[in-house]
Amino acid sequence: MSKKETKTLSRRELKKRQLQRKTLILTAIVAVLLLISLCAPMLMTHDPYATDPLAMKQAPSAAHFFGTDYLGRDVFSRVLLGARTSIFATLLLVVISFVIGSVIGIICGYYGGWVDNILMRITDILLSLPQLVLAIAVAGIMGGGLRNALIAIGVTSWTSYARLARSHAMRIRRLPYINSVRMTGCGDIHILWKHVFPNLIGSMLVNATLEIGTTMLSIAGLSFLGLGVVPPEAEWGSMVSEGRAYLQLAPWTVFAPALAIMISVMIFNYFGESVCDLANINEV
């Protein structure tokens, strides 16, 4: 009988297992990526800030895996160190906007009324502004630096979480179980925390993983424009920006960080997508 059963696994079941495997592999890759960026100082072959006038714009070699830039700094080490800035800044921003957005969204969706009206009009205004332009304006006013860049992007990035959390909270508010919980005499905060939040956190997290890639690009974009991380510090976007002037002479100074951005964005996007698929298939 058991043999028969394994054969008769439905197509959905098979797909689910496939997805689980895929998600597991991608999770491992993401973990490796995080580990690399955490251990960057140990893996670096050179001091990423040490300039070397004798080794300027050198092509990739055994001594410098990704070559050197116009100041003779080792690109490989800079890319590794940049990973830490890029990835952790991204994750930090995603977490902060996730928390702020979710709280606002849940409150709006659950209570409705004028609270909802005011907060949602604010998000409408923020959503109608081009995100990058607004970020440039904010960063321009507040000056450069990673912290200001994060604030500049964060001003608008919470809105998408708020929207999603709001629609989920509105849906959950109408479910019968909320009424039965109200009949136990619970207060609103208890209902929000114990009964609304746990039932929307899943899909919110899925959305957050999907947003990691975009957020990473935004940060790199701001840095590229010179509004994010201030130059001597290693960050992929600003490295591309710095190397751009010497693109013909030392293309590796652009390619290495660009490739790093591309690969990590791709990894996070794939990761988000498979988490999303898995969540969907589990829900059915």
């Binding site: 479910l175 019968p176 179980y177 009424n179 039965s180 919980v181 109200r182 009949m183 136990t184 005499g185 114990k194 009964h195 746990p198 039932n199």
Partner: peptide, 18 residues
Amino acid sequence: CRWFQVIFQDSEAAFDPK
């Protein structure tokens, strides 16, 4: 709620799924 309790039609949905 000490006086009344309501029981709904779709009782699976009337329990918190989590």
